[in-house]
Simulated assay, not measured.
Amino acid sequence: MFRTQGTLAALTIFFLVGCTSSRSVMAPTMTQSQALARIEELLTDTNSALTPRPRLELSDMFSAPTRCLDPGPGESSDQVVISRAYWLRDIPSNQHMDVARQVMARWERQGHVIVGTGGMEIGRPNIAGESRPDGFILALVWAEGDDLYLAATSPCVLPDTTPEP
């Protein structure tokens, strides 16, 4: 659960960028079920590289598909964006920066790109990345209350109800 409106607004905008950031690398026929499977793979892979190993707790903040806001050429306004976030439980706050460095190292080893960081100098890490080769948005986010969560968002994908071409 978010504890401030500002954090929620910033992260909502961040996750909605998934519609437009990676058009050139995303296969246009991926379905929302396939996107959710890829999100779970990305997040559990990241978590598996962390020491101490956090307990993942699914957050309900991004549980429903969101309509793609800005479909590009060849994309449909019926496409959706899939997002998931997991709270990283059982991580003491004095280890948040260690976890942040491990997340960045894992993403880079996997060939993903770090696109931005913030809060590192004050021990409140926020890291944004993009998966390769498929352009999913990745995030490690510090939230008020001294909690961290991992999140991922797909590019625009076909709803499961859409037949593949």
Score class of each variant (00 low, 15 high):
residue 8 L to E: 09
residue 55 R to E: 14
residue 142 W to M: 03
residue 4 T to D: 03
residue 80 V to A: 02
residue 25 V to S: 15
residue 114 I to F: 01
residue 56 L to G: 05
residue 110 Q to F: 04
residue 22 S to A: 15
residue 127 I to E: 01
residue 13 I to A: 15
residue 158 L to T: 03
residue 128 A to K: 02
residue 55 R to F: 10
residue 120 M to R: 05
residue 74 G to C: 14
residue 159 P to Q: 04
residue 39 I to S: 00
residue 2 F to R: 02
residue 58 L to F: 07
residue 7 T to M: 12
residue 99 V to Q: 01
residue 41 E to Y: 08
residue 81 V to R: 01
residue 5 Q to D: 14
residue 11 L to A: 07
residue 139 A to Q: 10
residue 128 A to I: 02
residue 99 V to Y: 00
residue 51 T to I: 12
residue 86 Y to E: 01
residue 61 M to H: 07
residue 125 P to Y: 12
residue 20 T to C: 15
residue 43 L to K: 02
residue 8 L to P: 00
residue 146 D to L: 08
residue 148 L to P: 01
residue 44 T to Q: 15
residue 21 S to Q: 15
residue 78 D to V: 03
residue 43 L to E: 03
residue 101 R to F: 09
residue 54 P to R: 09
residue 67 R to P: 02
residue 96 H to Y: 09
residue 72 G to H: 07
residue 31 T to C: 07
residue 1 M to G: 14
residue 47 N to H: 11
residue 132 R to H: 10
residue 81 V to K: 00
residue 164 E to L: 10
residue 95 Q to I: 11
residue 119 G to N: 09
residue 129 G to E: 00
residue 104 M to I: 12
residue 37 A to E: 13
residue 135 G to D: 08
residue 23 R to I: 11
residue 4 T to N: 02
residue 125 P to N: 14
residue 85 A to N: 05
residue 46 T to E: 05
residue 12 T to P: 02
residue 149 Y to I: 08
residue 70 D to C: 08
residue 153 T to E: 04
residue 76 S to V: 08
residue 134 D to N: 12
residue 61 M to E: 15
residue 127 I to N: 00
residue 146 D to K: 12
residue 3 R to C: 09
residue 12 T to Q: 11
residue 42 L to Y: 05
residue 77 S to G: 05
residue 42 L to E: 07
residue 33 S to Q: 07
residue 69 L to Q: 08
residue 151 A to D: 04
residue 120 M to H: 04
residue 116 G to M: 12
residue 103 V to W: 03
residue 79 Q to P: 01
residue 16 L to T: 08
residue 159 P to Y: 01
residue 60 D to K: 09
residue 80 V to Q: 01
residue 72 G to N: 08
residue 140 L to F: 06
residue 140 L to W: 04
residue 46 T to S: 08
residue 87 W to D: 11
residue 19 C to D: 07
residue 90 D to F: 05
residue 122 I to W: 05
residue 156 C to E: 04
residue 114 I to S: 02
residue 151 A to C: 13
residue 163 P to R: 05
residue 44 T to D: 14
residue 124 R to E: 15
residue 139 A to E: 13
residue 136 F to P: 00
residue 108 E to M: 06
residue 159 P to L: 04
residue 125 P to D: 13
residue 80 V to K: 03
residue 141 V to N: 04
residue 50 L to D: 06
residue 148 L to C: 09
residue 135 G to A: 12
residue 94 N to T: 11
residue 152 A to F: 00
residue 101 R to Q: 14
residue 83 S to Q: 12
residue 154 S to P: 00
residue 83 S to K: 04
residue 33 S to F: 01
residue 164 E to P: 06
residue 23 R to G: 13
residue 63 S to Q: 12
residue 143 A to I: 06
residue 91 I to K: 00
residue 6 G to H: 12
residue 100 A to H: 06
residue 99 V to M: 05
residue 14 F to I: 09
residue 15 F to M: 13
residue 24 S to T: 14
residue 147 D to F: 11
residue 112 H to W: 06
residue 63 S to P: 04
residue 81 V to N: 02
residue 44 T to N: 15
residue 147 D to R: 14
residue 119 G to D: 04
residue 129 G to F: 01
residue 67 R to C: 04
residue 88 L to G: 03
residue 41 E to V: 08
residue 17 V to F: 10
residue 160 D to I: 05
residue 35 A to R: 00
residue 10 A to K: 09
